[in-house]
Amino acid sequence: MFPAPFEYHRATSIDETLALLAKHGGDARVLAGGQSLIPAMRFRLARPAVLVDINALHELSYLREEGGMLAIGAMTRDAALETSALIASKYPLLADTSALVADPVVRQSGTVVGSLCHNDPAGDWGVTALAGRAQIVIRNASGTRTVAIDDFLVDSFTTAVGEGELALEVRFPTPPPRTAGSYQKIERKVGDFATASAAARITLDADGAITGAGVAIGAAGPHAMRVRDAEQLLQGAKPTKELIRAAADAARALADPVADNRGSVEFKKDMAGVLVGRALIAAIGRLGVEGLR
């Protein structure tokens, strides 16, 4: 399986990248980890005429906290999150995701930003980004803008990144005290895209009431989706089994998956609920509140 013919540029700076993207417009695609783009090209499902490789842009490979945000650069690989002490200690939702996305080999190459830009309906990072209220920084020849994840994920395989644009980084707000998250995924084998997945982020106040909630599901629609009904139910409430069941049911109601080899619509809808329940229980459990199963 060989890609259709294409032109290849290895960019040496962000400016050069933007110039190349501006020049080739809709014919050009950014090449990050290549773990989605290259397979698609080999199957000839994608036939970009021009590739702009950003792997030499080491300045885009970082994980840093600044201004109340964790910034993840466009060339930061999944494996960097999986092995980061910072992520392990402060960002359990991201730590979970980085250990469940794809397989260990793919994670050596694949990037978080590339995954968000790819916007596969069953991709993992979009789900986590929604629950974690991420923002994406996008640059083009004329400037830089920041887009909330909810506006970034436009449709299957379509994002707010336009022609001639480069996503520079994704930012996650640094969690306030007593915040935890969890990412849950059902897959047929390691390295498979999700049959269903769910992310939850919960902040509790001193009384144990929920003061912040993010809930999202994957493989249940054209792209990852926030379960706003569940977030509303959770906001201000104290965690109980009933509350979690209700949040899970909200996910079941929202889920609008397609049937494929991974499962039927009925199964996937139910799994969206099961996984939202499990993600909430795990996140709240990480805050020391047990007995919700």
Partner: peptide
């Protein structure tokens, strides 16, 4: 991706 061969992980 659709004909599954298990890895050492599962």
């Amino acid at each position: 991706t659709e004909y599954l061969v298990p890895t050492s992980l599962e």
